[in-house]
Design a protein around this nucleic acid. Structure first.
Length: 555
RNA sequence: GCCCCCGUAGCUCAAGUGGAUAGAGCAUCGGAUUUCUAAUCCGAGGGUUGCAGGUUCGAGUCCUGCCGGGGGCGCCA
């Protein structure tokens, strides 16, 4: 429940500025480029200069003594440097963090204050073939966001949407017939990959028209198994056909069909009420241009079949209806053009329904950029329909779950990722993931050694006061900031910060270990250093777990 | 043609909501271990942040234009 030191300091600083100058100021603490400058830097001199019409230096000189007093329990020095107020944490505060971390790790982690119920939808691959590496990247990112959120006590759930309707299912049906030799020419837009033959053989005895549904279910099961092996699970699975008209298909063939058709009708009614529906050439359009879109978007085709867009709106209304307050969707770059119209449509939907919570504001799309596979320095072209594949399964076989997940998380979401397969295979012994895992294993072995030497008893506060070398202080500082890091990952939806932070912590520990003897003559110092090592191990283990990466005890 | 993403060290990428001397890994070169895991550590070289302007105390970050790469622009999903 403890707020982090950084948040505490920011709140206090804000308060002091308000009391001293009577102006509000959002204070965002930064970390100075050089540790000699302190642990935190508040760039408030520049920011106050304008509203107060006074030079930064003068402002800070007036502020510094008050800050020093207000932050006394946590901060041992406050210095003015250029336009910054540089803060140095007290040894006591850092040692207290260590004590609390070890006493009750879960309680030491910060909690997300306003618990908006969040639903993250990701992967949501078509049930027409195996998962590819783009799905793998989305799975890594989405799952880690879910885990981080939960670790901070935020109500976050994971959902998978199955596009089990529309043209691709018809194409699947045709493709199955082709694989069974019932038609000579391969269907246009068909799925010609060898994998499908295996599924097709199992439905040979089913009549044409009923096979695709069975195969889609089987593929979905296999996808889920593959994801589970990748460490990724979902709380909910929702099918597109739930939003279809139940008259479309007999329910004994499709148990999902039409269960939530009411949502589809509700969407159309809301738009009708709002008078934003347009009929042109026999098709029904949503006039998104009233909110700045380029052109109206088709909801119902001229032959009466609804589009994916309409079903997607019904689906997202269903999400809001279940009480989620923030909807996060992870989409591929090919869906980029849909973001704007979707937000507009949700705004209109909320207005039409008179429900302000249904709105584009509460709908966040994260575009997870594409993955390009390289082999021998050349692009590996992939096409589901042509049957050219490199699957999630292949990836796990080749580089393993740990390396794959770590590697995917190492890039920010918005960066296209070149995945060099030759390099990835080579990386198996050079990948940074092993650098981090090694710290965990090393500390495990260290603990065993200490036990063997008969070192007993946990560190007392007086022991921890001995942690004063630069390497020890650096580690204490990194540990104390771990909660802030998780908050950043959660609030900004930037999971790539996590592996970087763990690499930094690992680097700090390796350097510390190299330079200082941990189990030694001085028992008090030994206890203190073991406590520090145990805390590092705990944080590393937690961080790796959030990434779905194992924390081995031996390497 | 319009919209979006990207352009940072030889390579792959970071850079905490506009902050101090732009940082890591890999690669290259040079060192370190009789004692707790060398899958480690220490050090060196390597940069006009694609180009040109602008905004301001301050720009890799924001704005405009251009160049290059990728993606999208369907009564497909």
């Amino acid at each position: 429940m403890s707020p982090t030191i950084r948040r505490t300091l920011e709140d206090r600083l804000k308060q002091v500025v308000q009391e001293t100058f009577g102006v509000p100021l959002e204070v965002a603490l930064e970390v100075p480029p050089n540790p000699d400058l302190g642990d935190f830097a508040a760039p408030i001199g520049f920011k106050l200069a304008r509203p107060l019409k006074r030079p930064p230096q003068e402002i800070l000189q007036e502020l510094a003594p008050r800050v020093r007093e207000a932050l006394a329990p946590w901060v041992e020095s406050v210095e003015i440097q250029r336009g910054y107020l540089n803060l140095r944490l007290s040894d006591q505060a850092l040692q207290d963090q260590l004590t609390q971390l070890l006493a009750d790790f879960e309680a030491w982690l910060p909690r997300v204050a306003e618990g908006r119920r969040m639903l993250i939808e990701f992967v949501s691959a078509n049930p027409t073939g195996p998962l590819n590496v783009a799905n793998a990247r989305a799975a890594s990112v989405g799952d880690t966001l879910v885990r981080v959120g939960r670790s901070l006590g935020a109500p976050v759930e994971a959902e998978y949407y199955v596009n089990d309707g529309g043209g691709q299912i018809r194409a699947l049906e045709e493709s199955i017939a082709w694989h069974l030799g019932e038609r000579e020419t391969p269907p246009q837009d068909g799925y010609l990959g060898a994998y499908l033959k295996h599924y097709a053989e199992k439905v040979r005895d089913l009549p044409y028209g009923q096979r695709a549904r069975w195969v889609a279910e089987a593929i979905l099961r296999d996808q889920m198994a593959e994801l589970q092996a990748f460490g990724v699970t979902f709380d909910h699975i929702v099918y597109e056909t739930e939003f279809h008209d139940p008259a479309e298909e007999p329910r004994d063939l499709n148990p999902h069909i039409g269960r939530r058709f009411a949502y589809t009708q509700q969407v159309l009614e809301a738009f009708r009420r709002l008078k934003v529906l347009r009929e042109m050439e026999g098709a029904l359009y949503l006039d998104t241009t009233v909110r700045g879109d380029d052109k109206p978007r088709v909801l119902v085709r001229s032959d009466g079949r609804p589009t994916y867009f309409l079903y997607d709106l019904a689906y997202h209304l269903y999400k809001f209806d279940r009480g989620y307050e923030l909807l996060v969707d992870l989409w591929g770059p090919d869906h980029l053009g849909h973001v704007k119209r979707m937000k507009i449509a949700l705004d209109l939907l909320g207005e039409g329904l008179g429900r302000p919570e249904v709105s584009g504001e509460n709908f966040l799309v994260l575009i997870v950029q594409q993955v390009t596979l390289l082999r021998g320095g050349k692009r590996v072209r992939m096409s589901k329909r042509k049957g050219e594949y490199y699957t999630l399964h292949d990836l796990v076989q080749e580089v393993g779950v740990d390396a794959a997940r770590f590697f995917f998380l190492l890039r920010s979401i918005s960066t296209p990722l070149d995945f060099d397969l030759d390099l990835a295979r080579k990386l198996s012994s050079e990948n940074p993931v092993y650098y981090v895992q090694y710290v965990h294993a090393r500390i495990h072995s260290l603990m065993a050694y200490a036990a063997e030497k008969g070192v007993q008893g946990s560190a007392q506060p007086s022991d921890l006061a001995l942690l004063t070398t630069p390497e020890e202080r650096h580690l204490l500082r990194l540990l104390s900031g771990f909660g802030d890091l998780l908050l950043d990952v959660h609030e900004r939806h930037e999971p790539h910060r996590l592996p970087y932070a763990l690499m930094q912590l690992a680097e700090g520990f390796h350097a510390f270990y190299q330079k200082h003897r941990i189990v030694g003559e001085d028992l008090a110092r030994t206890r203190a250093r073991l406590a520090l090592a145990r805390a590092v191990q705990r944080v590393i283990r937690h961080g790796l777990d959030l990434m779905g990466v194992r924390a081995p005890e031996k390497m």
